[in-house]
Simulated assay, not measured.
Amino acid sequence: MTGEVLAFLLAGALAGGFINGLAGFGTALLALGFWLQVLPPGQAVSISVVMSVISGLQGVWIVRREISTHRVRLMRFLLPALPGIPLGAMVLSMISAPALKLTIAAMMILYGAFFTLHRSLPSIQRPTPVVDSTVGFLGGLLGGAAGLSGALPTMWCAMRPWTKAETRAVLQPFNVVVLALAMVTFALHGQYTPETLWLTLIALPATMIGAQIGIRVYRRLSDARFRRLLIVLLFASGLLIVLRELPALF
């Protein structure tokens, strides 16, 4: 392993862990920006899934009480997502993955830009179990098809007047479970070669440190600032996807 590969690997792990610790998602979006410079795409994605799950588990621990209190709410999102994952994998065989990612990225950019420019954030007060379940299913579908399981749930949760801990108690375990299933799928397909596992072990400490730094910053945010952060990150994530996927169409 060259010094350049090691530097990019550790930088991506630190950045990915930080954003997951801060917001509860986004590990792959940041980490892949570094890792795709020096690693094959399949290997980079396989490592990012492991890092997402591990850093996500740290975030799950800090909102464990809210998860327990609102477990019915979480299940409304999570259970419908499970059948959506294999369906998404089937959909992927019929459509262009870059085109799908760009479509979702455009939604994230429009959503993020619209609410970033508005002083007041949306606040849907009434219970919406049907919409919650639909968003969860679509999140699983997009997770299986394009690895974007958190996009729609994050958009929807940012419009609810929940505390930052309540919001995270949905998003964090949702993403961890979906990505853990993706990790198992990758393992069954032989993605985790000895070399990939070695790189994962090297990246692991930096990811955990980054996540702890992100969690420290998260604790300092007010509920309103956390909701605003989610919206800004959706906008930025959409732009990153466009920059990464647009060349694949040409």
Rank of each mutant, 00 (worst) to 15 (best):
G3L: 14
G3T: 11
A7V: 12
F8H: 10
L9S: 03
L10E: 02
A15T: 10
G17D: 04
G21F: 06
G24E: 03
T27L: 00
L29F: 14
L29S: 13
L29T: 15
G33P: 12
G33A: 10
L36H: 08
V38W: 04
P40F: 06
A44Y: 07
A44K: 11
S46Q: 05
V49E: 04
V50Y: 00
V53D: 02
Q58T: 09
W61T: 12
I62L: 11
R64C: 11
R65V: 09
H70K: 09
R71Y: 13
L74T: 01
R76S: 04
L79S: 04
A81K: 04
P83W: 10
G84E: 03
P86S: 04
P86V: 12
L87Q: 06
L87D: 06
M90A: 15
M94E: 12
I95K: 10
S96Q: 13
A97C: 01
A97E: 15
K101P: 06
K101Q: 15
T103E: 00
A105K: 06
I109T: 02
I109C: 07
I109N: 05
A113F: 12
F115I: 07
L117F: 11
L117T: 11
H118E: 11
R119T: 06
L121P: 02
P122H: 09
Q125G: 06
V131R: 11
S133R: 14
T134I: 14
T134E: 00
L142W: 10
L148N: 11
S149W: 02
S149R: 00
T154L: 14
M155L: 13
M155D: 04
W156P: 01
R160Y: 05
P161Q: 07
T163C: 06
E166Q: 15
E166F: 04
L171N: 13
F174A: 04
V176W: 05
V178P: 03
L179T: 12
L181Y: 04
L188W: 15
H189V: 10
H189G: 13
Q191G: 05
Y192R: 08
T193A: 09
T196N: 06
T196I: 11
T196A: 13
T196F: 11
L197Q: 08
W198Y: 13
L201N: 04
I202E: 08
A203L: 10
L204M: 15
P205V: 12
I209E: 00
A211F: 03
I215P: 00
R216K: 10
V217K: 09
R219K: 14
S222Q: 10
R228N: 07
L229G: 01
A236H: 02
L246R: 06
P247D: 09
P247I: 09
A248I: 01
A248D: 13
L249N: 08
L249S: 07
F250E: 03
